[in-house]
């Protein structure tokens, strides 16, 4: 098996562990926030909503864990820098795709099974998909850099990460308040995504630049512990 294949296999394993964790949290949040009025529909609505949100956010979490832990393990077991970098990008693709598809399947099954159509984030809508792609690319691009910051600057990097996470959590909280107040994401997304293709190109650029910087830092990555 080639080095890239082994790296993909390794990151596949790590990626699915993270996906499992994200699903567990989404289900817990769905029950916690959606179960307030005891309806199954509300739980499904909130659960699938958080699945999409976590799909966007998990990129940063995996990059920070990678810098602190998994990259060391990879390199100490004979993985090449280049292959580890490819594996990291694969994980960045795997997690959001699986979580989005899962949310999509849950929503479609729910629509057919219980006739529920009132989603916070309807994954079948183009605007939501566009927002998801743009958000994920930017967050994961930033995550690539934050992960390397954590490795390079230790605790200071972690502080930067925590500040960013607090900001993101604030965003998630604010979105929840918006939802509670009756606003809907598709409307906001429609405004934001008036120029969808430009946004996607900009997000891809952010991701590519951040990943290039990450690659340069991975090349210099040294194992000390």
């Amino acid at each position: 098996m080639s080095g890239v294949k082994r790296s993909i296999r390794y990151w596949n394993w790590i990626g699915f562990r993270v996906i499992g964790l994200a699903i567990a949290f989404a289900v817990a949040y769905g029950i916690l926030f959606g179960g307030m009025d005891g309806s199954l529909e509300e739980m499904l609505r909130m659960g699938s909503y958080y699945m999409v949100i976590f799909g966007m956010l998990m990129g940063i979490a995996i990059q920070v864990s990678a810098a602190q832990c998994y990259l060391q393990q990879c390199f100490s077991m004979g993985c090449k820098r280049k292959d580890a970098f490819i594996g990291l990008q694969y994980t960045n693709l795997l997690i959001p795709v699986v979580l989005y598809l899962l949310a999509f399947v849950i929503q479609r099954i729910s629509e057919n099974a219980v006739g529920f159509y009132d989603w916070n984030m309807d994954t079948s809508k183009r605007s939501i998909l566009l927002m998801y792609i743009v958000g994920t690319l930017i967050i994961e691009g930033v995550g690539n850099i934050v992960g390397m910051f954590c490795f390079r600057f230790g605790k200071a990097g972690l502080v930067i990460f925590l500040i960013l996470m607090l900001g993101l959590c604030g965003g998630v909280g604010a979105s929840f308040v918006m939802l509670c107040n009756g606003d809907s994401f598709p409307k906001a997304a429609a405004v934001l995504l008036g120029n969808g293709s430009i946004l996607i190109v900009a997000a891809i650029l952010v991701y590519v630049v951040c990943s290039f910087l990450q690659y340069r830092m991975i090349q210099k990555y040294e194992i000390h512990a």
Partner: peptide, 28 residues
Amino acid sequence: REISQMSGFGQNSLKIKDYLKAAAIFYP
């Protein structure tokens, strides 16, 4: 490599079976 003891974050938060699984993936 010699594994040093640290708590919390990092390689040390992994389990023995995780180490062995990673080794099984990487060592041909």
